[in-house]
Every structure is written in C-alpha cells, then in structure tokens.
C-alpha cells in the first residue's frame, strides 16, 4: 500500500498528537488541525488525500467542515470520528458524502484499514475523474 497524506482534525490536542505519531509510525504522511478553519487552510495549502474528522468540535463542527471540504474537492475522502452523542451527526455526514464513520476510541488497525480503504476509493475516483465525482462504497 502506497503512502498517502492524512489530515487529522480534532479539537483534543492529546488525542490528535498521539494518533498522528502512531499513524506516522505506520508510514503515513500526517497533518493535523485543531479546528475547521485550520483544516481548510491546510487543505488549500498542501495535498491531502484523506481526512479523519472529528464530528463534534467547537466553532465549525464536523458536518460544516465536511461540506467545506467536499465543496473544495469532492475527491478528498473523509472518515468521520465520533466520540459522543453524535452518531446521528456521523450518519448525517454519510449523506454529505463522508466515506464512513468510526466510534472513538478506535483501534489503530481499524482506523488504518478504514483510511486505506478511503485512499483506495480516492485513487479510483481520481482515475475516472472525468466521469463522475461521487464516491461509492
């Protein structure tokens, strides 16, 4: 599996930092952002393949960020992470084109596989770029 760039968006810095270290250890390029605005700025600045997005955050919440990302580049895949009473939000995210959602705390392998699947989907999407933007499961 080739390397790709993952953007971690989570307002919990401890969580974000550790998870970033662990993903890097698994040979991924990891960027991290504490909120929606920072995330959008990073996406505009550098190439991001997959976003791991916390649903509930202060300021711009996960759904808003998801819509902004999809508006910017529909081919960037987003995996929603949900920590609390926000399963509906995650499900709602699915309607806005999120790749999937996972419940926190999430096993590192589970997350890794999900990110890889998402990246795979992005690659397929990129290949038939001309045909249609909508990712499918």
């Amino acid at each position: 599996m080739s390397e790709f760039t993952v953007l971690l968006v989570d307002d919990e810095e401890d969580f974000r930092r550790t998870l970033a270290k662990r993903l890097e250890k698994r040979n991924l390029q990891v960027l991290s952002a504490a909120g929606g605005e920072e995330a959008m700025a990073l996406i505009r600045r550098s190439a991001v393949d997959v976003v791991a997005l916390d649903v509930r955050m202060p300021g711009m919440d996960g759904i808003d960020v998801l819509r902004a990302i999809k508006a910017h580049d529909p081919l960037i895949e987003v995996v929603m992470l949900t920590g609390h009473a926000s399963v509906e939000a995650a499900v709602e995210g699915m309607d806005f084109g999120a790749f999937d959602y996972l419940m926190k705390p999430v096993g590192i392998d589970e997350l890794l596989y999900k990110l890889q699947d998402a990246y795979e989907a992005r690659r397929i999407g990129l290949k038939r770029n001309s045909r249609g933007p909508t990712p499918s499961e």
Binding site: E12, D14, F15, T18, G83, H84, M103, K104, P105, V106
Partner: peptide
C-alpha cells in the same frame, strides 16, 4: 469517550 479515546491511543 474522548478521555477514554486518548488513553487508548496513548
């Protein structure tokens, strides 16, 4: 859930 998630990650 968040603190638990952090502990599990650590």
């Amino acid at each position: 859930n968040n603190p638990v998630a952090i502990m599990v990650e650590e």
